[in-house]
Nucleic acid binder design. Structure first.
Lengths: 335, 335
DNA sequence: CCTGCATGAGAAATCGCTTTCCCAAGGGGC
DNA sequence: GCCCCTTGGGAAAGCGATTTCTCATGCAGG
């Protein structure tokens, strides 16, 4: 793929018959020279397959064209799509991503952050698995910009989260639009801000005393919630909005077991659009996708802006979610 | 966390009353000087919170203390644990990891590899999601060492995979040890080398004409396989070894639906030990764990050796799998 | 008492590129 | 026709380490 020694800028300069300085400026679009000169250098570089040594460039320009991505999501459920998005936004700017999983280990976090700083990263993107908790590292007072994604961020920071309210509204209105009138929301612990926020909006759409059940983020809880809702003490729901796909799957399984048809008798919407769960459910789940890759992509863009010294409005940015229709709701494929 | 300008080596040297050269050697353990001098420099560095500039160090020493991790596993199912292992093995050597997901896009692969090379990585770890397929990039003739993990590798390369044969034997013998005598193996497509190898060993343990069913790697296939095995034409198995946890889950669900008790009537072992699937199954799955993090850790060690110029025996290294006992088999928690 | 060699430490070159002056030449204004 | 300003391009000083020599110094050997 690459043979022999790497071509240096000085080689290109010599070939193009210009000085080192001119060659550098030509390729970077800086400095002043005739278009003809610039082009000649470009051609030479191109022809020789010149690739600048990023280390040298970083050392003198004080920009390393690398960013660090810190995450405590060891599983990758959230951080993999975010990383993919970040990388996508940055790769053609020549920026690479150091990825560091730190779980919830503060010492490990510090270690990695220091390693990043030593490597002169142009910025750090900090991502989590929950928007109301922070990673066990203090990223304030760092000599580089920081962008927070899908995690809680300090006051005045640049941060990016998915729009729980809009996602929940999307789900509830979809169920309502299908003609479902007795809706219930089965979600995770009320200790999660996301769970509370989605529940709030769910009530906003369906009425202040519609049913909201908090529990674990598990299939088991989905099961149990169905058992409660169908205990005969009240007319059961005809639409279920679940806080994540695992709960939804548990619920759908429980409904099947008790002979309730999905989507015939009940429509179910999940949250997360976790392919592996949503697609394996019978029937496959209609679900809210948080567009994590988009979140990552936007984070990448913001990081880029910041590292180029462009000003970025601080504060929390909420990115919209998107309803992905499968078969657990019936109804058209409209939207 | 860090305040003001970074301390440079020259600052340390001045503070310790030695030259730049001596300071460098003192901190790197190279050169010759009295223990007292060395220690004095160390103390000064420590006291001033000196952190060497990795770029500068890389530029002159020709080692960047970074490695690239290439993967086509966009989901992170395999690459996240591998990355965690790699990072764990390298972090206290001060080595950071560039992570690049390239899916199956050859152009993207080339782009990322070139970016890595520009950044002077000390080596590249190439990881996949299937041991009999390669990534769409040519990593031969690179100016840096390459280690392959969980992917097919060219002749003569250094490569690391999990030991399918040992894992399969572990599973089959566990079932046999539980007194199960009519064993069946339900697994993925025979086009997968892993599926074939595990099936081979399964037969080696259970007899040449024991049942092996190939299908998709899905829950749906687990269902269907159970339907076939329990169609009444033959005495059904009392032990099921499934090719992955999804198949196992499908099978367990199907068994429950037809009133067959797990683990009462049938013991089921899965493969992958994918927590999210294995733990949510009712009952939770006993499964074979491929120890991917260990695989990554070992890959990190090999990479380190290679990048330090130490010789590494080429060839395929197989790392053992491990049986994780949950409740789908009954029997003791022995082992 | 002089030569020789091991030893501790420093001067300076280098790594490959960026960037800041600085200078020569050409052109326009008065 | 003189002067000043614009313009294209180059020389050289870093960036912050590593590393190769080189050089005093002190001690042992003859």
């Amino acid at each position: 793929m690459l043979v022999g020694d790497r071509i240096r800028l000085s080689d290109v300069a010599r070939a193009a018959g210009v000085s080192l300085a001119t060659a550098s400026k030509a390729l970077n679009g800086s400095g002043r020279m005739t278009a003809e000169t610039r082009e000649r250098v470009r051609q030479a570089a191109e022809a020789m397959g010149f690739r600048p040594n990023a280390m040298a460039r970083a050392l003198s320009s004080q920009r390393s064209f690398t960013v660090g991505l810190l995450t405590n999501d060891g599983y990758g459920r959230f951080s993999m799509p975010v990383m993919a998005g970040v990388a996508e936004a940055l790769v053609d700017q020549g920026v690479s991503v150091f990825m560091c999983g730190i779980e919830d280990d503060a010492a490990l976090g510090r270690l990695h952050v220091e390693a990043m700083l030593d490597k002169q990263v142009d910025g750090i993107i900090c991502s989590g698995k929950r928007i109301d908790r922070r990673l066990p590292v203090d990223l304030s007072d760092l000599p580089v910009p920081v962008v927070y994604v899908f995690t809680d961020a300090p006051e005045g920071a640049v941060s990016l989260v998915s729009d729980d309210a809009q996602g929940a509204r999307e789900a509830a209105e979809w169920l309502a639009g299908l003609g479902r009138r007795r809706l219930a929301h089965v979600t995770g612990p009320a200790s999660f801000a996301s769970a509370r926020e989605r529940a709030r909006v769910f009530r906003e759409v369906t009425g202040p005393d519609s049913t909201v059940l908090h529990g674990a983020w598990s299939e088991a809880w989905g099961h149990e919630a169905v058992a409660r809702l169908w205990d005969g003490s009240a007319p059961p729901p005809d639409g279920l909005f679940c806080g994540n796909d695992q709960i939804a799957r548990g619920a759908v399984d429980a409904l099947r077991e008790r002979g309730v048809a999905v989507p015939g008798d009940v429509s179910v919407v999940g949250f997360d659009n976790w392919e592996i769960v949503a697609a394996a459910t019978r029937p496959p789940l209609t679900s809210i996708d948080m567009n994590l890759k988009d979140l990552g992509r936007e984070a990448g863009r913001l990081m880029l802006a910041l590292s180029e010294g462009r000003a970025v409005e601080p504060g929390v940015r909420r990115q919209p979610c998107r309803l992905v229709v499968r078969q657990s709701c019936g109804g058209g494929s409209a939207r």
